Simulated assay, not measured.
Amino acid sequence: MTSAPLDRRTFLGTAALGSAAIAAGSSARADLADRLDAYQFEVNRPEGEWREMLSNLEFNVLREGGTEPARSHPYWEASEPGVYSCKACDLPLYDSEWKVILPMGWVFFYHSRPTAILTDIDRSGPMTGGTGPAIEAACRRCGSHHGHIVGINNEVIHCINGAGLTFTPSAT
């Protein structure tokens, strides 16, 4: 399912915030563990409990900031109406009406639900590729890493790992 592209004002505002965040990167924390220690999330669990409730891939993505292989999760090309929530704490993050299917093989959304996603500088993520920091997208409730906010085809969109999501179809 595709949505209308971002309007110019929204795009420029988001790009300005992203640029400011990257410029402030020198004072930002260097990795996911530091961020998790520095912020008080509503849902906190010891590592052993996270490992019990998540598969190895889910733990790697959500708790260690990893990335699933492209096209490895069925959500990347799913088009059913519904809500995508955080697999670690069930917070609704994205509505399917904001989803866009791109050939890269991850789950893409034009934006999240209000106050659902926290952003931060990710210096260690796979998206950096030696070109500088990336903007990380994490769950506001539990701090789980979901992916990154990227620029593709002149649009700022959320590139999300399907392994970190659950899907609830819309009632018909």
Rank of each mutant, 00 (worst) to 15 (best):
M1E: 02
P5V: 13
L6M: 11
L6S: 04
D7F: 06
R8N: 05
R9M: 08
T10A: 12
T10W: 06
F11P: 00
T14L: 13
G18M: 14
G18D: 13
A21P: 01
I22L: 14
I22S: 07
A23M: 10
G25M: 05
G25E: 06
S26F: 08
A28G: 05
L32D: 09
D34I: 08
D34E: 15
D37G: 15
A38K: 12
A38R: 14
Y39N: 07
Y39H: 11
F41V: 04
E42V: 04
V43L: 01
R45Y: 09
R45K: 14
G48F: 03
R51L: 13
R51W: 10
E52D: 15
E52Q: 15
E52C: 11
M53Q: 15
M53I: 13
L54A: 11
S55R: 11
L57D: 08
L57Y: 04
E58P: 07
F59H: 09
N60E: 04
V61C: 09
R63H: 08
E64L: 15
T67P: 02
P69C: 01
P69R: 08
A70I: 01
A70C: 00
S72D: 02
S72G: 07
P74W: 02
Y75F: 15
Y75L: 13
E77I: 00
A78N: 14
A78M: 15
S79L: 07
S79D: 14
E80N: 11
E80K: 15
P81C: 04
P81T: 10
G82M: 06
V83I: 12
V83G: 01
Y84H: 10
C86W: 10
A88V: 04
C89G: 04
D90S: 14
L93S: 10
D95E: 15
D95A: 13
V100A: 09
I101P: 00
L102F: 04
P103K: 12
P103M: 08
P103G: 11
M104T: 04
W106L: 06
W106A: 01
V107C: 10
F108D: 05
F109M: 09
R113S: 09
P114G: 08
A116F: 11
A116Y: 11
D122L: 11
R123T: 12
R123V: 07
S124H: 02
S124P: 00
M127L: 08
T128C: 14
G130Q: 13
P133H: 05
P133Y: 09
P133C: 07
A134C: 12
E136A: 14
S144A: 06
H145P: 03
H146E: 01
G147D: 00
G147L: 00
H148K: 02
H148A: 02
H148D: 01
H148T: 00
I149P: 00
I149T: 06
V150Y: 02
N154D: 07
N154Y: 04
E155S: 08
V156R: 07
H158E: 06
C159D: 03
G164Y: 00
L165A: 06
T166E: 05
